[in-house]
């Protein structure tokens, strides 16, 4: 069952097509990753989902009806570029953003106190935001995103600028929210995080979706074709095999790409027949990072972006 359906969303700015007929679906109870490089169209897509931009064409369907204010009230959005009123006090900020979502009263105050304690900021509740460190400001921003108990959480690059300890804290809370049944949409260019947190992904590149589905399904789809073998012998003879597309020799490790329909099992049988001593045979080790590279067909640029995780 899909909770959100994005259908043929398109948005241009002048002559630039930022988002070009994008469609994907978000299943109930999932952590959904919208993955792509900077400038691929993630934020524009999210803004259309949040009703901040009107799409040129296409629509977003929430459980059968077109999204509107109802979705805004139910969603918590942490934009990539964050901002809060610098002169406003922490406490006032939290209550104000909750009020904008239509939530006021004792319940919200109790929750605000709970989260402030959890993020170790309880003693700063009467400080002005400008007096807080950048990291602490980010924590407050995150609290404003989840304080109204949203059903949907849209997090655009949530980890940028956080130190490792706070990154872990945030990850823990995301997983906790997931276990509470919240639907989380995670926008990121960090494949590593996406791989660990998401169960469904959509890869977006130059305004188009190039890959979309459950992560495990995608992984099996791609893993079938890539095999990593550790052995000392020369494996170049495999090239002549009908099921092999290419062989790359990296010294002790060889990476073999199978043609469509080629089964890893068949390859293994061939190797054993040739009496090759295999130290390691891995058919499922492809990372999201590699999938991305393969899907976009662009090698070097992504390496530099994805590498510094």
């Amino acid at each position: 069952m899909y909770v959100l359906e994005v259908k043929e969303l398109t948005k241009s700015f002048g002559k630039i097509k930022a988002v070009d007929h994008i469609s994907f679906t978000v299943p109930e109870g999932s952590v959904f990753g919208l993955i792509g490089r900077n400038g691929a169209g993630k934020t524009t897509t999210i803004r259309m989902m949040m009703n901040i931009y009107l799409p040129d064409s296409g629509e977003v369907i929430l459980r059968g009806t077109k999204i509107g204010q109802e979705f805004k009230d139910k969603a918590g959005y942490l934009p990539e570029e964050r901002g809060l009123y610098k002169k406003m006090k922490v406490w006032d900020t939290l209550l104000y953003f909750a009020e904008l979502k239509g939530k006021t009263g004792r319940e919200i105050e109790k929750k605000a106190n709970y989260y402030l304690k959890k993020f170790e900021l309880f003693d700063r509740k009467n400080s002005k935001l400008e007096d807080l460190s950048k990291g602490n400001q980010q924590k407050i921003q995150f609290i404003t995103t989840i304080l109204h108990d949203p059903e949907f959480l849209i997090l655009d690059e949530p980890f940028s600028g956080l130190d490792p300890i706070n990154t872990d804290l945030l990850k823990e809370i995301i997983l906790e929210l997931k276990s509470q049944g919240k639907i989380i949409i995670l926008c990121t260019h960090l494949m590593d995080f996406a791989e660990r947190l998401c169960d469904h992904i959509a890869l977006i590149e130059k305004g188009k979706i190039i890959l979309h589905g459950s992560l495990s399904e995608i992984k099996t789809r791609f893993a079938k074709k890539n095999i990593l073998i550790s052995c000392e012998e020369d494996l170049m003879f495999l090239k002549d095999l009908g099921i092999v597309d290419s062989v790359m020799d990296n010294g002790n490790e060889k990476s073999i790409k199978l043609k469509n329909g080629g089964e890893p099992q068949e390859l293994l049988r061939q190797l054993i027949q040739k009496n090759i001593i295999i130290k390691k045979f891995a058919a499922d080790e492809i990372s999201l990072h590699e999938i991305f590279i393969e899907a976009t067909g662009e090698d070097k640029r992504l390496n530099t972006e994805g590498a510094n995780v």
């Binding site: 949040m50 204010q69 934009p79 901002g83």
Partner: peptide, 16 residues
């Protein structure tokens, strides 16, 4: 200030 500090995007996710 709201535009410059990027508060506006947060605000617009709640209000139009």
């Amino acid at each position: 200030e709201e535009k410059n500090n990027k508060i506006v995007e947060v605000l617009l996710s709640s209000v139009n």
